[in-house]
Amino acid sequence: MNPILLAIVILGAIALASALVLYVASRRFAVKVDERIDRVAEVLPQANCGGCGFPGCSAFAEACVKAADGGSLEGRLCPVGGQPVMDKVAGILGMQAGAAVARVAVVRCNGTCEARPRVAEFDGVQSCRVQQMTGRGETGCVYGCLGCGDCVAACRFGAIRMNPATGLPEVDEDKCTACGACVKACPRGIIELRPKGPKGRRMVVLCNSKDKGAVARKACANACIGCGKCVKVCDKFVAITLENSLAYIDPEKCKLCRKCEEACPTGAIHSFNFPVKPIKKEE
């Protein structure tokens, strides 16, 4: 027999046999996948950022399908895709997407280099978590920003950077997807995801210090001293609560009247994205 022919026959036979084995195997060991998962995953951004709290887009898709089977998509949000993507996901799953509020990370500390003098010098790995283990850290405030930028490192969207002038991280609102990675990274729990507010306008207490007024003030000129003036001026809306010498503005209740900002003696309350028309001249 022609050797070329022989080779073709033998190889053909091997190929056929292998194909059979593969066919049988693929049938026998097929993993049943809910096809909805793939369809949901298709509409996701595929950034695999983990911002939703799941290890990647396909895991999130799976979680959405499971949640849909459970009856509600409440609490499932792709921070990158936002509402449009969730609407699509809901459409695929035949559900109504929960109305998601656009949120943004807010660094609740205004202990700038100027306002909060360094009382010690940290020498070690430039990591907030490491500095946190030394106790109070470089400044006199046990609650304030440590300034090593663990949040900056945690952000996968380049939305946080350190401002060298203040020594504090700053959030780029356009880039922030409210994925919450920075919130988890901050050992002092300073960063909070807050609703962006109408036109991005919002009022925030930029302080996290639960120290008594005098202690907080001594450590930082911009600290909330728990004087309660803001609570008083907000008697109409009751949006501000005071706990452990720290005021907190409930974004749901806040009507953006800015009275608290005026009332605050230390300037701990800040307004974001209001038109530049200072109601009162600030010092």
């Binding site: 010690a120 940290f122 020498d123 106790g135 470089e138």
Partner: peptide, 8 residues
């Protein structure tokens, strides 16, 4: 003066 703080 400011003390240096670091971990052991």
């Amino acid at each position: 003066s400011k003390f240096i703080i670091s971990l052991s």
